[in-house]
């Protein structure tokens, strides 16, 4: 009898310890980056592009990477949105009828979700070579859109599935078509979830480096057309860190703080949005 009690408490201590490790590692990662990065962060980093001699430790900042990442992630997210929303709507019973196609699509999306981003990058690169094109903003946007597609679609489909069937049937009984019902009933009801899906995918897109390593390229200038190569924040961190000069490595830390802030902002916005909009949902 006593033995069981002892076993129970040892087990409990181990569990709490594990949770402390998980939470501690989150704090450790964020803390380390802030501690090392904040002292290196200054206004020039945010407002200037990389000047001549930047990689030798001279002046300038990473505005080119910030703008580049914004272009890439916004472009990729917008493109992924139009595909994802269509797929997520189509997976409703009214359209796909819960058929083999919808099951196959779900399986494909799951596999795509698990596909490493470096494979997207390699595939994107082979397509570029096939068309004899060079790394560009457009190619980066397309690869990021493909990378975000499964994340966004699965998140959207999860919430669309929760819209009560009765609610839709009321709309159908008033003579509305599937499209009208989907746009004015389903999407309103699912709005917070849809937005969350978009934001999660955006966060994934802005932080991914492996997929755009060969497809978006890297440059010190802000891209002016879709066919220019473009810098990005994750790659800025990666390249600056591989420099042997401590001054340049410092800038990698600062860039990581900027990227981390973006991710934190997305995470907080997601929470606030779902709290705000949840009030308007018919339960």
């Amino acid at each position: 009898m006593e033995l069981r009690r002892v076993e129970e408490s040892i087990f409990k201590i181990l569990m709490i310890l594990s949770l402390v490790i998980v939470m501690g590692s989150l704090l450790g990662v964020i803390g380390t980056i802030l501690l090392k990065g904040l002292p290196a962060l200054n206004i020039d980093m945010l407002t200037k592009t990389a000047q001549g001699g930047y990689y030798l430790g001279k002046g300038g900042g990473i505005l080119n990477a910030i703008i580049g990442s914004a272009y890439l992630a916004i472009g990729g997210t917008v493109l992924a949105f139009f595909l994802s929303i269509g797929i997520a709507f189509y997976l409703q019973k009214e359209y796909s009828g819960g058929t083999r196609l919808s099951n196959l699509t779900r399986l494909c999306l799951d596999i795509l979700w698990g596909t490493p981003s470096i494979v997207y990058g390699a595939f994107g690169f082979t397509v570029l070579m096939f068309f004899h094109m060079r790394a560009s903003l457009l190619a980066g946007i397309i690869v990021l859109a493909l990378l975000e597609l499964p994340i966004m679609t699965r998140a959207m489909e999860e919430v669309i599935k929760t819209v009560p069937q009765e609610l839709k049937e009321v709309s159908y009984s008033l003579g509305a078509t599937r499209l009208e019902t989907t746009l004015s009933v389903v999407s309103k009801q699912a709005l917070p979830g849809l937005l969350t899906g978009v934001l999660i995918a955006f966060g994934r897109g802005i932080g991914d480096a492996a997929s755009i390593l060969f497809t978006a390229g890297y440059t010190d200038r802000i891209p002016t057309s879709l066919f220019d190569a473009t810098a990005s924040l994750p790659l800025a961190i990666f390249f600056q860190l591989s420099s042997p000069l401590p001054q340049v490595q410092q800038k990698a830390y600062a860039s990581a703080v900027i990227l981390l802030m973006v991710i934190l902002a997305i995470s907080i916005t997601t929470r606030l949005l779902s709290r705000k909009y949840n009030k308007y949902i018919i339960k």
Partner: peptide
């Protein structure tokens, strides 16, 4: 309280983890 933090852990980009690895 823990769930958003776990989600945040999932959202941190891999280069940031890499940098943490190099620094810590």
């Amino acid at each position: 309280a823990v769930k958003p933090l776990i989600d945040l852990l999932a959202g941190i980009p891999s280069v940031v983890y890499g940098l943490w690895g190099v620094l810590a």
